[in-house]
Design a protein around this nucleic acid. Structure first.
Lengths: 240, 240
DNA sequence: CACGTTTGCGTTCATAGAGTTCACGGCGGG
DNA sequence: CCCGCCGTGAACTCTATGAACGCAAACGTG
């Protein structure tokens, strides 16, 4: 497949991730995304570099690299800089569990287009990939920018959070509040307790807690022991 | 002024621009910006590289480079990649008159933080520099990110809603009125209350309040407790 | 084992404010 | 003088919330 084909037929992705389980998961997620396909999956810096060199030699292009930053034989950002110096044009989405803020800045200056914290949900990756596709689309058609606006628009596509659309009847701020209340609570919370802590009614709290359960960010388990109907206990499971 | 001074007293900037007139103008603009100072002004890739090497050897740091892309002895983005490969951490704002959209993508992957089309107004540069300062601030304090939100927030600071010119449908005098009304109110105001205080309708007040939220000068938080849809409470956060 | 008791879940509905659409008035330019 | 554009606000629709209420599920008792 040529670069031109890639642009037309889809965006080819290289997955770089040392953990085999995570690598398989990422690969699966990308394959599920319409318009994207996985060109390869490798587990180290050296393999990634070798893969990209070979792809370039073969005239095929890797449009996007899903790059874990902590790899057994080196750091992802260093690989990134090496790639740039070698003239590779592949875009990079950094994937890391490091919470270090300074790393974010280094990543930007190394030229990553997105920065995704592990562990992430399929929805989160979907969001990033879709926005990358739009970014690419807005710049891909060869042409002249009419003005600064157009350039800014492209930057905004990469850098605006644009939270995913919530179901009707739910609002983002309330969801944030309830989610953080639940996250803080080491042990689980009942809907009533969560509501009290978040400053909303039990009914509202329950709505958002159910949403969190639906989207896999929380679980609920009944609490037996006392007389009466068992109390449902919601517990945070982490995956955002 | 040393780099340590620079880190404390402000952000040190290297201006790279071959046209002497433009170079002087850029230098002047940067010097006028509070919190920024010009570490040097050079006119070619080679000089820029030499300057940065010497600064590093002297233990001083250049935080930001205002980089023209078309230089007599090479292309700015190539210089950028060279810098990355050599381990220079300076951030880069690309400045160019090229309208080529493909160049924008290359610039992103080379790790530029902003892309500014020439000719630009002093206000446009001011806006970019201020955003950069805030971006740097949000990442600079060494610390751990609590979640993806914080990372996204930092990325969002590099996006550009062009604050110097108001969006369509908004006028400067009304914005001033609404902003000062909100600033005076110690506790938050609802859109209706702000409108009443400013002497405009709820709808208009909301427009301007939303703009203030978009530009980071205000936040909005829902007020729960009573029946009915929660009232949105806007609160001034100061950053102008 | 069956039935009452108890407790909290889950649903329905009224409500109040958010958000949107569209028409008006005023101002500047041709 | 007329035309078009821009900021404003009125009317309307939509949406997020909490109160009330019936019901489900476990325990206790005979």
């Amino acid at each position: 497949m040529t670069a031109a084909d890639g642009a037309r037929a889809g965006i080819s992705v290289l997955v770089v991730e040392d953990d085999p389980v995570a690598a398989a998961a990422h690969t699966l997620y990308v394959e599920r995304e319409p318009g994207f396909h996985v060109a390869g999956t490798v587990h180290s810096c050296a393999d990634a570099l070798r893969f990209l060199e070979r792809a370039r030699a073969a005239g095929t292009s890797v449009d996007l690299t899903l790059l874990d930053l902590y790899l057994p034989d080196g750091h992802g950002l260093q690989l990134c800089r090496t790639l740039r110096a070698a003239g590779h044009g592949t875009d990079v989405i950094a994937v890391t569990s490091a919470r270090d803020l300074a790393m974010v800045r280094q990543a930007v200056s190394a030229g990553v287009v997105q920065y995704l914290l592990k562990p992430f949900s399929a929805a989160a990756l979907h969001d990033r990939l879709e926005r990358y596709a739009r970014y690419r689309d807005s710049l891909g058609r060869a042409g002249e920018a009419t003005g600064q606006e157009e350039v800014d628009q492209a930057f905004a596509l990469l850098r605006t959070p644009e939270r995913s659309t919530l179901p009707k009847g739910l609002s983002a701020p309330t969801l944030d509040t309830v989610a953080s209340v639940l996250r803080e609570a080491a042990t689980g919370l009942s809907a009533a307790a969560a509501g009290a802590a978040a400053g909303v009614s039990r009914i509202t709290a329950r709505r958002y807690l159910e949403h969190l359960v639906d989207t896999g960010r929380a679980v609920r388990e009944p609490q037996y022991g006392s007389v009466g109907r068992p109390e449902l206990c919601y517990r945070w499971t982490g995956r955002p």
